[in-house]
Amino acid sequence: MIVAERKPFEEIYECVKRHRKVLLLGCGTCVTVCMAGGEKEVNVLANQLALAARDRGDDVEVMEHTITRQCDDEFFDEATMKKVAEVDAVVSMGCGVGVQFCAAKFGDTAIYPGLNTKFYGATLEQGVWAERCAGCGECVLGDFGGVCPVARCSKSLLNGPCGGSADGKCEVDPENVDCAWQLIYDRMERLGRLEELEENRPMKDWSTNRDGGPRTVTREDVKL
């Protein structure tokens, strides 16, 4: 899923106070799972904003609404569009994709991001999420025992660990980050495939990554 974190309150408040009527729009998919921008978080933030506006004497009315997904046309139903039409601005509590989808849909209504979108990741435990995929566009996981050196090695090294691997940890953040190459080594050893790691991997073609420019996927077979 896409993992995001809510922006600091004051940063959001600075945007909100420029308007009279604001809609906080939650998203029911990834950011609900990572507890950043779902119905619950929308409700908490709406109350905080309303309280702050009252205390500081700012004339702002805050409304709440959450849809299933902000990155798909079909979830922007009539009720949602009606709510948007009533406000001066929308704070999207979706990921960066949701914010942009809203901006494109809502025409002349101002739109602000309520979250900082972080990465494609997984839940490690309640309250802890970690990056697992860099979306490079050419998956190499099959060659590395299911551990990604592109996303999980701090230097995206494809030919083994750098000198900064110590006790299974990455020197860049030994508290929180495992050395991807220690994980790769352990997995490949377990799979009896260590000799594959002795092969020299050529330079990666980064044109399938963001380096090739913004990307699109078109499937002619499923287009309507």
């Binding site: 083994g160 660990p161 691997s165 110590a166 050395c179 002795e198």
Partner: peptide, 30 residues
């Protein structure tokens, strides 16, 4: 370069072998 002191230790010689295979003429260690 080669770092015989990094982990995993067993991979350290493999990494040197890969550098040799890639075309290194000389190595300076940590």
């Amino acid at each position: 370069a080669a770092n015989p002191f990094g982990d995993p230790f067993a991979f350290r010689v493999i990494r040197l072998a890969k550098k040799v295979k890639a075309g290194a003429d000389f190595i300076q260690t940590q």
